[in-house]
């Protein structure tokens, strides 16, 4: 089965990102494909490498980055949602004249077309969060 994953909530406040992560990991381990994970609404906040939870807690951002590295997962952060919330990659920082970027390893910033595209290509589009 080909899955597309949508994460609509940020880390820690809601469990949506945890559930999406567990689902993606389980699907990959069972031999399914995860074509893309798309982060929208506050979900874009999962993609900042400045996330620093207490040491005895799970590191939601790093966990996504590691899963991406292990499985070649495509983690896409919506550009419009990211701009509103201050999630910036080196290209965007340059384009918008910002003095820094904060995108985490394995994440990339792109447009909503990437969400529609995975909706077309996947057998199932799984939406996590409100």
């Amino acid at each position: 089965m080909k899955f597309g994953i949508v994460v609509n909530e940020g880390p820690y406040t809601h469990e949506a990102s945890d559930t999406a992560y567990q689902f993606s990991k389980a699907a990959l381990e069972k031999g399914h494909e995860v074509l893309r994970v798309f982060f929208y609404h506050d979900g874009v906040n999962n993609g900042t490498r400045l996330t620093t939870p207490p040491q005895d807690d799970r590191h939601i951002t790093n966990r996504w980055s590691e899963l991406a590295e292990q499985h070649g997962l495509d983690l896409v952060v919506c550009i419009a949602a990211a701009q509103r919330r201050g999630i910036v990659d080196p290209d965007e920082a340059k384009r918008q004249g910002k003095d820094a970027n904060n995108i985490a390893s394995g994440f990339r910033i792109s447009g909503l077309g990437q969400l529609i595209e995975v909706g077309i290509q996947a057998d199932r589009l799984m939406v996590f969060g409100d």
């Binding site: 929208y40 609404h41 419009a80 949602a81 509103r84 447009g111 909503l112 077309g113 969400l115 529609i116 595209e117 909706g119 077309i120 409100d130």
Partner: peptide
């Protein structure tokens, strides 16, 4: 769409996806 239009950003950002989907002739 389950949210009121201005209490949260869900409606606005939701509409943006709808418009992109339509632009892709879905």
């Amino acid at each position: 769409n389950r949210r009121a239009p201005y209490g949260t950003i869900y409606a606005l950002e939701g509409l943006e996806v709808v418009l992109i989907g339509a632009a892709f002739e879905q």
